[in-house]
Design a protein around this nucleic acid. Structure first.
Length: 465
RNA sequence: GCUCCCAUCGUCUAGUGGCCUAGGACGGAGCCCUCUCACGGCUUAAACACCGGUUCGAAUCCGGUUGGGAGCACCA
């Protein structure tokens, strides 16, 4: 009995940009499956494009994954470190007559492509160097000799069987004229050698897959299982790209999104589990299934992400939020002192914040020493009569011994009744005096969170301004 | 142009032949709660692209049409 080997999945980004939303979802689905099936999750950096790949992007991609807590078990493997391996396979294929040198120049190729396109044909390579003299001393690249007849079927875990006529496929370049192997070749060798069992990747790779399958066969490898995820789209239904706004995962961190919210959101684009919307990481690992991944592309809907983020903020505990919001407060120039005052303010503010940026803004009046009231608000809420009222309330507040919510409420309400007023008559002037804003938590909670000293100081300061 | 893929409310989706006068969620509208803003609660508008089959019966199966997307590099 052969030992059943654990599934091995991978995420193989190319470091030519930051980790983007689409890549992150691909990584997530692979990670989810690896964790669910108790397999391995491997990170491989596809950096054969020496022109565009940078070390900075490698770090940025890893940082994005770490932020999302998508941990990998092996890697990161770099393809640049594996050129010798690819080279040996190229040589083997050549020796077996399964690959050949192509001496066509880029200019010639370009011209023929244009002609084909003009004639309404698919711009594929015509294979003319298949019969060319292989000993020529001209610059060359190496092409894979693909099948001309029959068809290649891609058994796709998401889309079902996809059949390609081999005649549609041309001989792809597996090694550039500078000796560097190409993506379609390296990916096959790496996935085979790393014993990857499931290749789950973006839909944009389907057309490469039949050629990759031919490469697996030519080199005597057993192809892995494939699954092609539908694309994440922008509002105009085209593939999500920079012109649609922020696409980098780290940009969402900057905007004050929580990793769990983004994970939840990403999981729900193209995948569902009945009517459920909120999924913890553990639930996703448990419930995720390729069977429930849809076939059509999904639009990235930031409104829904905001809603999810608000949900996660509301449900996070105050201490966790304190740590998360601190960098945002510091960016605002607020010195953060961790303690009861901070957590209390967070407790009151979290249900009205959709992002960490909004939370930081809401927290400012609690944490900064000085507040300012702009002229428009002053004119509207701090007229002489209203200011006089605020002053009277300050007098009432001053007499409270035990400064808790119940006592504040009782004292202020008693005052209002004695004046024949309603809470609404004094609430906004008080709020503006205390926060410089018309928006804040409830007025009693606010005073309590501020403390007696700060409350009085702010209420009294109104007169002197 | 060619190849491949896709098609349910504005958006994410449920739906695997009868449970569908199509359900949920975001967003929208309205109401309630209320010291502001939120939160929360309730109500509501809003979709099976089209045309043919198959079937007693179709959002669900088949064919076509239309529409959309992706790919067609010595990028990945």
């Amino acid at each position: 009995m052969p030992e059943k080997t654990a599934p091995r999945l991978r995420f193989a980004p190319s470091p030519t940009g930051h980790l983007h939303i689409g890549g992150a979802r691909t990584a997530l689905f692979n990670w989810l499956l690896a964790r669910q099936l108790k397999g391995q999750f491997i990170l491989r950096i596809e950096d054969t494009d020496r022109e565009r790949s940078t070390e900075e992007y490698v770090h940025s991609i890893m940082e994005g994954m770490e932020w999302l807590r998508l941990d990998w078990d092996e890697g990161p493997f770099h393809q640049v470190d594996r050129f010798e391996i690819y080279k040996s396979f190229v040589e083997r294929l050549q020796a077996e007559g399964k690959a050949y040198k192509c001496f066509c120049t880029p200019t010639e190729l370009e011209e023929r492509k244009k002609a084909l396109l003009a004639a309404g044909k698919k711009p594929k390579y015509d294979g003319r160097c298949r019969t060319a003299d292989q000993t020529q001393k001209k610059a060359f690249c190496i092409r894979f000799l693909s099948k001309d007849e029959g068809s290649t079927t891609v058994p796709d875990l998401i889309k079902g069987d996809i059949v390609f006529e081999n005649a549609e496929l041309d001989d792809l370049v597996i090694q550039r004229s500078d000796g560097v192997p190409t993506y379609n070749f390296c990916v096959v060798i790496d996935d085979a050698l790393m014993r990857i069992s499931h290749v789950i990747r973006g839909d944009d790779h389907v057309n490469n897959t039949p050629r990759q399958i031919q490469l697996y066969e030519a080199m005597g490898f057993v192809p892995p299982k494939f699954g092609h995820l539908p694309m994440i789209l922008g509002a105009d239904k085209t593939r999500l790209s920079k012109r649609h706004g922020a696409t980098s995962v780290l940009a969402y961190r900057e905007m004050g999104f929580l990793p769990d919210a983004l994970i939840n959101f990403l999981a729900r684009i193209g995948w569902s589990h009945g009517d459920q919307e909120i999924f913890s990481r553990e639930e996703l690992v448990e419930k995720f299934s390729l069977e429930n991944v849809g076939k059509s592309g999904g639009v990235f809907n930031q409104e829904k992400l905001l809603w999810l983020n608000a949900h996660y903020i509301k449900n996070a505990d105050d201490k966790t939020l304190g740590a998360l919001v601190t960098p945002f407060l510091e960016k605002e120039g607020v010195t953060v002192v961790t303690g009861a005052a901070l957590f209390g303010a967070i407790h009151l503010s979290k249900e009205r914040s959709r992002t960490m940026i909004e939370l930081a803004q809401a927290l400012k009046p609690f944490l900064s020493d000085e507040i300012s009231v702009d002229d428009t608000l002053r004119a509207k809420f701090l007229t002489p009569e209203k200011t006089a009222l605020v002053e009277e309330v300050a007098g009432v507040i001053e007499k409270i011994e035990l400064f808790d919510e119940a006592n504040i409420k009782a004292a202020v309400e008693q005052f209002i009744v004695s004046k024949g007023l309603k809470l609404g008559d004094v609430a906004q002037p008080l709020r503006v005096s205390l926060t410089g804003s018309t928006v804040s938590p409830g007025i009693f909670e606010l005073m309590h969170a501020l403390g007696k000293d700060k409350t009085l100081k702010r209420l009294k300061k109104i007169q002197t301004l």
